[in-house]
């Protein structure tokens, strides 16, 4: 709608309306703007600055240039924590997503009482991570735990789940499968969004179950899968509580995750410069992966709008 042919007084009124609208718009987002400056942008820059200093809180900070980064890259334990975290991210997240997809497909079946199964699969993901961690320490207990009771029941020998450096990370990943419910519900919403006509058209064309899934369901689900993947990877890079409570980083540093190492540097040893350098390295890693995924997403993520364009 243009303003041509409207009397001058009305134009003036319209302009002032727009101005007041813009003024109110800025006013309404002002709390967020302040928050962004005080709690996001400011601290980000500050932590970059701190990462170039040596600072133990009680002593004055000393500018050391890139020394913290040099120290970081020569620190075996830093590389170990990065390896442990990458293991958790790149093995745990895809498997977690795969199981969530299977669960979503299963509870999308058109069966009576399916709602019960949806609820049953979702409920475990509600358990708070602290309670979850304590429960699973007990489940993984080598002598009296449920996991070994099951293994012995099927005739296998029990394992030292959290006491064996080779098994501790896989054990934490197995534990994470228990809470696939959140992702399942997001994927289920994606499945519900697939238009029925597409299935019907595919069925008329003689497509069987498998090719319907492969050609119709999965492409239309890629936006939801993409979103889940990004958020899950960012979250998994910051895995902390499980290791803090269940294994304290052990055994033999096998669950020393990145954030746990950073936490110890910052809040147990008060090496703020070192910890800030770690924070920035993690930020760069996560940023790189997110950017990479957005770039690669062109190849596999299918947006409905693309067809219309």
């Amino acid at each position: 709608m243009g303003i041509q042919g409207v009397p001058a007084t009305k134009v003036k009124k319209r302009r002032s309306l727009l101005w007041s609208e813009a003024r109110d718009g800025y006013l309404f987002i002002l709390p967020w703007v302040f928050g962004f400056i005080i709690f996001t942008a400011g601290p980000m820059l500050a932590s970059l600055y701190i990462s170039f200093t040596r600072w133990e809180i009680v002593t004055p900070s000393v500018w050391v240039g890139g020394a913290q980064y040099v120290k970081l890259f020569n620190d075996d334990r830093f590389w170990l924590s990065l390896y442990n975290t990458s293991y958790y991210v790149f093995i745990g997240v895809p498997l977690h997503l795969f199981f969530a997809l299977l669960a979503a497909l299963a509870v999308n079946l058109n069966l009576r009482g399916i709602h019960f199964f949806r609820t049953a699969y979702y409920v475990p993901s509600l358990t708070p991570v602290v309670a979850n961690s304590i429960l699973w320490v007990w489940i993984f207990h080598p002598d009296w735990g449920l996991a070994n009771a099951f293994l012995e029941w099927i005739g296998l020998e029990g394992l030292y789940w959290l006491q064996d450096p080779r098994l501790a990370k896989p054990a934490l990943i197995v534990m994470s499968f228990w809470s696939i419910g959140g992702q399942m519900v997001i994927l289920l919403a994606g499945l519900k969004g697939v238009p029925m006509e597409l299935y019907e058209a595919a069925a008329i064309d003689g497509a069987n179950w498998w090719s319907r899934f492969w050609r119709v369901t999965l492409p239309l689900l890629t936006p939801a899968l993409f979103f889940n993947l990004i958020i899950a990877i960012i979250g998994a890079f910051q895995v902390f509580t499980q290791a803090y409570i269940m294994t304290e980083g052990g055994p033999n540093y096998s669950t020393l995750f990145y954030l746990l190492y950073l936490f110890r540097a910052a809040f147990e040893n008060f090496r703020m410069g070192y910890a800030s350098a770690m924070a920035w390295v993690l930020f760069i890693i996560v940023l790189t992966f997110t950017a990479l995924q957005f770039m690669l997403s062109d190849r596999w993520v299918f947006y409905e709008g693309d067809v219309r364009r």
Binding site: G42, P43, A46, S47, I57, L259, L262, A266, A279, T290
Partner: peptide
């Protein structure tokens, strides 16, 4: 606003703690 959803909160933690 949306991009801050993807920001790992750890990068702001230490200065925020100090404030």
């Amino acid at each position: 606003v949306l991009s801050t959803i993807m920001l790992p909160s750890i990068v702001t933690l230490i200065p925020t703690f100090i404030v």
